[in-house]
Design a protein around this nucleic acid. Structure first.
Lengths: 155, 155
DNA sequence: TCTATTACCTAGTAAATCAGTCGGTATTTA
DNA sequence: TAAATACCGACTGATTTACTAGGTAATAGA
């Protein structure tokens, strides 16, 4: 797994799309304006997202981007993998010189942990995130204070 | 949160240390040999780990490194934060130009998700990882086949 | 006391990645 | 036809990655 600022940009942009795409496509110019990400960088990110069918583009005036599938079918792991092109870790390159054991053991442990992180992120969908916040929005209108709670283990 | 290959190197090295440090200190040369990480790079990583009291160095012949505290007191998040110097994300730089709402909303959502990932990794200790594999080692001696199971949600 | 071994420190570096600019082309609406 | 939008490729400064080189400081053992 790999979680960089690039992945954060992608998730942020997809969140914006999920939130604002209810009634018609959203342009990259809008996302750029909303989220403070450069337009060209968004284009690069969306090229990757599109190749994984996570978004669908519509050209021409009034065009923009739709989600490629429903927000519930798009996981955070999907998004991050799309832009970070997650190369699978060594895993000893297929058993080559992993003789001693210590190396293989730690690699195995790391691989297990890594899958665990991946599954954790694969279990959280864009829809989960959006719904989670709509609840909050009811409580306090407009001015969101950040509480950074981290319950709700994303069923 | 930030999860790069650098963090992976650090976790791998700490795992090696936890596994081999039972009876005396482990030298960086050994870890370098075991894990295929360059010695000088390890030195850099361990400088960061040492500054966070995650390891303790002993100089001179027969020296090396010990864990700075028990493996159960060291979380994966601790290790990754030590080497990746996790800068906290924008969060709108403290409310400055976050007027429209869309930006703040997605930032809030991202922050929540980010804390969730962090807490997830903070709940997995080095000791957990080691114990988890010792069980496996009983089943099949020596030659570990990687199954990449990801149950045991790290209580 | 000398020597080897280890941690510890600083500087430099090629390669990759990040985040962006620039200048286009293709498609579609009005 | 004109404007708006997605789409595409090349280039770029800054940063990060992983590593090399060349030290100094402390310590165990001869």
């Amino acid at each position: 797994m790999r979680l960089s600022t690039k992945g954060r940009y992608a998730v942020t942009a997809m969140l914006d799309l999920a939130l604002n795409g209810k009634k018609g496509p959203v342009t990259l110019a809008e996302i750029s304006e909303n989220q403070g990400i450069s337009l060209s960088y968004l284009e690069q990110l969306f090229a990757a997202l599109r190749s994984k069918d996570l978004v669908r583009g519509v050209r021409g005036p009034g065009g923009g981007y739709y989600l490629g599938k429903s927000a519930d079918e798009i996981s955070i792991a999907n998004i991050i993998c799309a832009v970070d092109e997650w190369v699978e870790f060594t895993r000893c390159g297929g058993r080559q010189n992993c003789s001693g054991g210590a190396r293989c053991l730690t690699h195995t442990l790391w691989d297990d942990l890594s899958s665990e992180i991946f599954n954790f992120l694969a279990d959280i969908s864009l829809g989960d995130l959006v719904r989670r916040n709509l609840g909050k929005k009811d409580e306090e209108e407009g001015n969101l204070s950040v509480v950074a709670n981290s319950s709700s283990q994303a069923a």
